[in-house]
C-alpha cells in the first residue's frame, strides 16, 4: 500500500485542476439554481460551448488565443439566450428538461462525424493552448515530499484560482445588491416579483447568462489545463456532479461551491486512489472487485452521497437549516 501516494494525490486534488473547474462551474450553477431558482441541467453545455468556441477558433481556424476566448464567451451568451428565451416564461421543470436536452444536442453535435472537420469528432481537439503556456511566468516546479506540481500545472492553477476569486467577488457583490435581492425574490415567487413591477423575464435571462459565463470560465480552464478537449466530457453526468457540489457546499452561499468542490474532489480522488491499491495488495479480492470496476464505485458513491445529502442535510454541510433552498414546491 502506497499510503503516501494516496494521500499526496488526494491533497493535490484539494487545489487541483478538477477542483477549480468544478468550483467555477458550480459558482455559475449556484447563480442559476441556488440564487435564482432556475433548474439548469445543461451547465455542461455552457462549459462545452466555451471550450469548443476557443479551441475551434485557435486550432481549426488558426486565429489568436484571445479571439478564441471571446468567441467562447460569445457562444455562451448565445446559448443562454437560445435556452432562456423559449423556456424562462414557463414552469421550472420545462427549463430542466429543455436544458438537459440542449446539453445532449450540443454534445452530440460536437462528436458528430459530419462536423468533425471543425470539431475533431469524438477525438476532440488539441493544440490550442500554446499561447496560454507561452505566458507562463513560472520557471521551476514545486516538489515537496507531499505535493508536487510542474510549472505548467502551477500556471494553470494560478490562473484558475484567480478566476475563482474574481467569480466569487462578482457573486458576492451582486448578491448583496438590489439586483441580487430581485434575483432571490424570483426564486421565492416570481409572480409576486412581477406584481411589484420587476421585469422577471429579463432578470432570469441576466441570471442565466451570468451563471453561464461564470461556469464557462471553468470550461476554458479545463480545456487549457488538459491541453485537449473531448466531446464526451460534456455529458449530463458533468452537470450532475456540479449539482452534488453546489448542494454539498450549501446552495445560495457564496463560498459553497468552492468548499463543495474541494470536499468532493478530495473524497473522490481518495477513493479512486485507495480502491485500486487495495485491490492490488489483495485486500479486496478480485472476485469482488477488479480495477476496472473500481471506477464505477466512485460514481455509485457520488449517487448515494447526493441522495443522503438531500435527505438529511439539504442545506449542505455548512448551511443553516432555516435557509434550506430545496424545501420549496
Amino acid at each position: 500500500m502506497n499510503w503516501d501516494v494516496i494521500f499526496s494525490v488526494s491533497l493535490e486534488s484539494l487545489i487541483g485542476l478538477s477542483t477549480i473547474v468544478y468550483a467555477l462551474a458550480a459558482i455559475g450553477l449556484n447563480v442559476h439554481f441556488g440564487y435564482t431558482g432556475l433548474l439548469n441541467f445543461g451547465q455542461s453545455a455552457f462549459l462545452g460551448v466555451a471550450a469548443y468556441g476557443m479551441a475551434i477558433t485557435v486550432t481549426t481556424f488558426g486565429q489568436p488565443f484571445w479571439l478564441g476566448i471571446l468567441v467562447g464567451l460569445g457562444g455562451v451568451v448565445v446559448l443562454a439566450l437560445l435556452l432562456g428565451i423559449p423556456t424562462l416564461r414557463l414552469r421550472a421543470d420545462y427549463l430542466a428538461i429543455v436544458t438537459i436536452a440542449a446539453a445532449e444536442i450540443v454534445r452530440l453535435l460536437f462528436r458528430s462525424v459530419t462536423l468533425s472537420e471543425w470539431t475533431g469528432g469524438s477525438d476532440g481537439l488539441q493544440q490550442f493552448s500554446q499561447s496560454f503556456y507561452d505566458m507562463n511566468p513560472y520557471s521551476s516546479p514545486i516538489e515537496t515530499t507531499l505535493i508536487s506540481f510542474s510549472t505548467r500545472e502551477l500556471w494553470v492553477l494560478t490562473v484558475g484560482w484567480v478566476l475563482v476569486a474574481i467569480a466569487l467577488l462578482i457573486v458576492w457583490l451582486l448578491m448583496r445588491s438590489p439586483w441580487g435581492r430581485v434575483i432571490k425574490a424570483i426564486r421565492e415567487d416570481e409572480d409576486a416579483v412581477r406584481s411589484l413591477g420587476k421585469n422577471v423575464f429579463s432578470y432570469k435571462i441576466q441570471a442565466l447568462i451570468l451563471g453561464g459565463v461564470l461556469g464557462s470560465l471553468g470550461g476554458f480552464v479545463f480545456a487549457l489545463g488538459l491541453a485537449a478537449i473531448q466531446p464526451d466530457t460534456y455529458g449530463t453526468e458533468f452537470t450532475f456532479y456540479m449539482y452534488t457540489i453546489v448542494i454539498l457546499g450549501g446552495a445560495a452561499r457564496v463560498f459553497g461551491p468552492v468548499v463543495g468542490s474541494m470536499i468532493f474532489w478530495f473524497l473522490l480522488t481518495f477513493i479512486n486512489a485507495l480502491l485500486p491499491s487495495l485491490i492490488s495488495v489483495g485486500a479486496i479480492p478480485s472476485s469482488i472487485m477488479t480495477t476496472n470496476q473500481a471506477g464505477a464505485v466512485g460514481y455509485i458513491l457520488v449517487g448515494i452521497g447526493l441522495m443522503l445529502l438531500l435527505i438529511f442535510r439539504p442545506q449542505g454541510i455548512f448551511g443553516d437549516k432555516k435557509e434550506v433552498m430545496l424545501d420549496a414546491r
Binding site: 462578482i170 457583490l173 451582486l174 448583496r176 445588491s177 438590489p178 439586483w179 441580487g180 435581492r181 430581485v182 432571490k184 425574490a185 426564486r187 421565492e188 415567487d189 409572480d191 409576486a192 416579483v193 406584481s195 411589484l196 413591477g197 420587476k198 441576466q206 451570468l210 435557509e323 433552498m325 420549496a328
Partner: peptide, 30 residues
Amino acid sequence: KSLNRLSVIDNMRLGATGQRGENFWRALIP
C-alpha cells in the same frame, strides 16, 4: 406570496420602483 427566505425588510425594499442598484452593472458598484 410572501418571499419566505428574504427578510421582512428585504421584502419591503423589493417593492420600491426605479432602484438604480437593480441594474446589473450598477449593482456591482455599491
